[in-house]
């Protein structure tokens, strides 16, 4: 299985660390909505087909990647930085000071 890192190009899966399901919504840190926390920690869509997941290129540039991968064929249809266009901060982070 090869994952095409946007920085480094196609690399063997052994360079990457699986970070799991990318569909999960983490509640705000102060949230006391226990159902939302439970769902975030324990519930998975686990589809047979295209799966939105997070990988880290831990043996390379260390970027976190959002990968669309088919769980029936292991075919990868898209790879992007988790931070979207890579200019805006990750969700929940403060805007960079100019």
């Amino acid at each position: 299985m090869l994952i095409t890192c946007p920085y480094c190009g196609p690399r063997d899966v052994i360079e990457f660390t699986y970070q799991g399901d990318g569909n999960r919504e983490r509640p705000e840190p102060a949230s006391q909505n226990f159902e939302a926390w439970n769902a975030y920690v324990y519930d998975r869509l686990n589809p047979a087909g295209d799966h939105n997941e997070i990988w880290q290129h831990s043996g390379g540039c260390r970027a976190h990647l959002r990968v669309m991968r088919n769980t029936l064929t292991h075919e990868i249809s898209s790879v992007a930085f988790v931070r979207g266009d890579h200019a805006s901060p990750a969700r929940g982070r403060a805007e960079d000071k100019p």
């Binding site: 299985m1 899966v13 997941e53 991968r69 769980t71 029936l72 292991h74």
Partner: peptide, 10 residues
């Protein structure tokens, strides 16, 4: 170590 229904590994 990654989600799969493929019955084959890497």
């Amino acid at each position: 170590g990654y989600n799969s229904y493929a019955q084959r590994g890497n």
